[in-house]
């Protein structure tokens, strides 16, 4: 029975819907930190660190303008990563939620795809809250941080970015037996991506092989897309979008198969 399993849209939707039902009970509490987070970052990085960055900023932008869309992308990464690691692990191994779901017409493969969609949704919701706060702060401090109507596409893009990081996080989850091992994932995967993908400084001008290595990592492209959409995109952004879609598409079915084997003996 080792055929490759393709999730069904209907089953995936049901799993997504379960998560939405629970989220709707607590959404105010869950979303609130996402309004506070940009304030903290922009205060520390914009006013604190930014004060040391010489006039003229980066690529003609002030440091705050440069860093804000990057933080938006990393916010989506963190949202999807927590969802697909700790939250998924608890449902899988502790609460046994998936064991209950797969006795219904919803199959194991649908569970995984539904969780991808949910993690993406969560990223989009978190990111939209974050984005709204950035816009407001830009107006309040008279330093527009989002300057293009293209920014309206950001929630959709954050959904896609969230799905990408959910696939990556679920892949790790599908391989581990103990919750402590996430320390490795966050220290060795998520944190380096956060620090070295162009959120805080441009990596493109670094000597080889830094930009080349960065090109092969997911957050780098997510940051590029968010930054371009916030300020008006160049055609080059299509390469980043394509990269994200291909990376996600190629990896997506792998955790599906591994998780299915974990859920079905």
């Amino acid at each position: 029975m080792d055929t490759i399993r393709i999730p069904s849209a209907r089953g995936s939707f049901r799993v997504w819907q379960r998560n939405v039902t629970i989220f709707r009970k607590y959404w105010k509490t869950i979303l609130f930190p996402n309004f506070v987070e940009p304030l903290l970052y922009l205060a520390a990085l914009g006013l604190g660190l930014g004060a040391f960055i010489q006039q003229g900023g980066i690529n003609g932008q002030s440091y705050v303008q440069f860093v804000a869309p990057g933080l938006l992308a990393s916010n989506a990464m963190f949202a999807a990563s927590f969802e697909s690691t700790f939250n998924t692990f608890v449902k899988l191994k502790i609460d046994k939620i998936y064991d209950a779901i797969i006795t219904t017409p919803v199959n194991a493969e649908d569970v995984v795809a539904g969780e991808y969609l949910w993690a993406g949704t969560r990223s989009a919701l978190y990111g939209t809250a974050f984005l709204a706060m950035i816009v407001v702060l830009g107006i309040v401090f008279r330093e527009p941080l989002v300057t293009s109507w293209w920014a309206l596409l950001l929630p959709l893009m954050l959904l896609v970015i969230g799905i990408m990081f959910s696939v990556l996080g679920t892949l790790f989850t599908s391989l581990i037996e103990r919750i402590d091992l996430y320390a490795y994932y966050f220290t060795l995967v998520v944190t380096p991506l956060f620090l070295l993908s162009g959120v805080f400084f441009p990596v493109d001008n670094f000597p080889a092989p830094v930009p080349q290595v960065a090109w092969f990592t997911p957050l780098y492209h997510a940051v590029n897309v968010c930054r371009e959409l916030a300020t008006g995109p160049s055609p080059g952004v299509l390469v980043d979008v394509a990269w994200i879609l291909v990376f996600t598409g190629v990896l997506a079915l792998i955790p599906v198969q591994i998780m299915r084997r974990r859920l079905i003996g």
Binding site: R10, G11, Q17, R18, T21, I101, T104
Partner: peptide, 8 residues
């Protein structure tokens, strides 16, 4: 209720 949804 939620379980019933899994059966469409």
């Amino acid at each position: 209720l939620i379980y019933g949804r899994y059966y469409d």
